[in-house]
Design a protein around this nucleic acid. Sequence first.
RNA 1: GGGCGAUUAGCUCAGUUGGUAGAGCAUCUGACUUACAUUCAGAAGGUCAUAGGUUCGAUCCCUGUAUCGCCCACCA
Length: 877
Amino acid sequence: MNDLPTKYNFKEIDAKWADRWVKDNVFNAKADTKKAPYVITIPPPNVTGILHMGHALNNTLQDIIVRYKRMKGDEACWMVGTDHAGIATQNVVEKKLAQENKTRHDVGREEFLKEVWDWKEHHGSTIIRQLKALGASCDWPRERFTMDEGYSEAVKKVFIELYKKDLIYQGERIINWCPRCNTALSDEEAEHQEHQGTLTHIRYPFKDNPTKHVIVATTRPETMLGDTAVAVNPEDKRYKDCIGQTLILPLMNREIKIIADDFVDPEFGTGAVKVTPAHDPNDFGMGQRHNLEFINVMHEDGRINNNGGAFSGLDRFEARKKVVEKLKEDGFFEKVEDHTHAVGHCYRCDDIIEPYLSKQWFVKMEPLAGPAIDAVKTGKIKFHPARWEKTYMNWMENIRDWCISRQIWWGHRIPVWYDAEGNIFVAHDEDEAKAQAKEKHGKDVALRQDEDVLDTWFSSWLWPFATFGWPEKTDDLKTFYPGHALFTAPEIIFFWVARMIMAGYEFMGDLPFKDVYIHGTVRDAKGRKMSKSLGNSIDPLDIIEKYGADALRFSLIINSGQDLYISEEKFEIGRNFANKIWNASRLVMMNTEGVDTSTSLSDIAQNDLDLPDKWIISSLNTTIDKVSTAIESYRYSEAESLIYDFFWKNFCDWYLEIIKNRWDDPTTKQVARKVLEESLRIMHPFLPFVTEEVWQHLKEGNTLLCVDAWPQSNAKLIDQKIETEMATIFELIGSIRNIRAEWNIKPGEKIDCYVSTEEDKALLENNADLITSLARLGSITIEDKLSQTKNVASTVVGPIKCAIPLGDVIDVDKEKKRIEKQIADHTKQRTGIEKRLSNENFVAKAPADVIDKDKEKLKGLIDKIEKMQEVVNALKP
RNA sequence: GGGCGAUUAGCUCAGUUGGUAGAGCAUCUGACUUACAUUCAGAAGGUCAUAGGUUCGAUCCCUGUAUCGCCCACCA
């Protein structure tokens, strides 16, 4: 039991623990806990989702903090679940139907929804399984779905509440409409493609003087049939006098006014724009601002309707030709020129999308934004890195109303019913709506429910509290709201983060979380976003298979500064490190069998320890401190570097090498064993699988590491001086090894060292054994003055601490000059700082800690200069 | 067009309150040391994009320029 297998078999280990942790239910938080709760909520992945690198990064970050907090003794709850992802999911099922040559209209709404639910039952938990394989320590029994029963209640309640508060209204808006599919598309579904089109210039004559005209330009001439104004920039001198005058719309003979609007760019085209409020999003905006008439000239299938006069019945492209012909005939045509511009295409049938006027539901956002803005302004909610606050503020301060209705079937159906007269009844269900209608009409009337469903984000924005049972007043809600942190990608700050904050204040009266960590985007080695269509994505599941889940996690995090540029070799660092942990553990365990492990490091340190033991204990405690701080400050890659350096460089490369021939010393055994144990603890959040497996062997299966304690650092065990001294010794040994090779000194031979200060002399003398054994020398002699020989040595360590004579290599004069230059630099600094400290202005204004720091620096500089001066004085050629 | 970033070794990036530039890959040199070759010891490689400014001192703070990128809105 106490031995590790020779081979680190991550596949077996990963699978074993992923399974065991879930089975033992160790990640389930208790609502009736006495511990401090720590709560994060997962950005719910789409039910259609499969784990990609972005997920892997996002969830590893969350897992690190949640495992850390759990070990620290908090009641850690990582709320988990999936999002119904309206459009994405509907697409999957529609595609399936398409294979049978059917559309959703063929099967009908009810049957179609059954199909979607069916799909969800069979395929909806793929990503959950994958998260488990990644090692995510989510609160699995609490898993939710944004369309499960209770959650749907929450969504309805929110809609009704907002409606009652007059914060939800029905209004008109331009949406993307596909005339071929006969459906509305979201902005995400409209693919903009560069398109070689034309810009047709048309003359609009003045009513009072038909010989004069204004020229407008358009890419879609047929829309002129619905024009209700011409707009110019208010600052445009060419048109200043025309503002307010009346034009005659050609072909339709409608009187339209010239209006002034800032939207118009005087530089583009003629500086005059035809305004078609019903067929263009920008014109729609102008239409609202100027109270224009909205004339819809098109049927849903793209044919011109009766508002199009002589052109009614024509298809939109046919009409385009005919309109231009007629304009030419009637003398209103000015010219046509080529024009390349982006045109929206339907993602499904690739047909050109028509901006189309329709009725939609909206949420008034401005009243909700206030508390959410304050929360960030006052620092109650913090972004990490802080710069994202600017992005957030910029959006919040210019917030626009939120269009929440979607013309699809999969989702939360809008809880609105209409009677024959179009009266609106907002209710939880049809019965309640009927009751309302009965009250109004005094009798039973037939109602029909709104066909549309709600935007997916309208359920996601309730995630931090709806998952805990809201609107019921549950124990969960009481314990786990508000939460603590949110981890997500920058592109959904608006869609999701901002809205969750608003919902938190509106419905819970409190913020949903205190910290928002925004991580980078995962890209390929060339900087392109990873995507299926580009074929450049690296599948995290492949990496898990090939390198192990720990390797995936570790490598991702250590690369996670801003955006991550990933190629497969990047995962070697994690694989190598996990392998190193395995083998170092093996070495320690082979040599410490039967050792007493009940004594803590603090107690062991009560004994009179050797320098290397003291050093590794000090270094461990320093690392524990720094890693804890780094995790709590959301600096994960730094935390990993610290762990990596400590474990690999200090523990393995130096400490384990030093003690190689001292395994019979019981104290050393204890120290090595304990340091390994503590190292496993601090490495666990980052590499949970390998550390858990080693732990089981080390502890003979008595406890699980994932629910064991995070180590407490002991300030008494940290000795900065020892750490510096050891660094010096290591540097020296490195040099000696190098020189040995260079000068072909055989192992066991003698070498002379020269030091320049008493301190260094003592350091070397006290550790002569350590140095000779590690440098594989027979012995060293230490002379205390560099000046005693003319031909001093090649390698100088630090600011001339020690030199090794190996012939006529060093030039003492040169060495002297080098140090003198350093002294000069330091002196310059010194006078600079002195000058600053004697400046009354500075002393009066600067904060106390800045002045203290200056003073400290000054003291350090003076020390340094004095020491170096000594060295120079000693250097006599 | 609006907003926000980036520019440091051949590559990918650290560098947190301004004080003599760091890591990992890659390259080269050495080591077969019985935990690990997914190893160990070293070397080489940077006017910190550019031009100014503030400062005794700038990779760091301020301004301009260039190049690259992201988000939002998309131009009749």
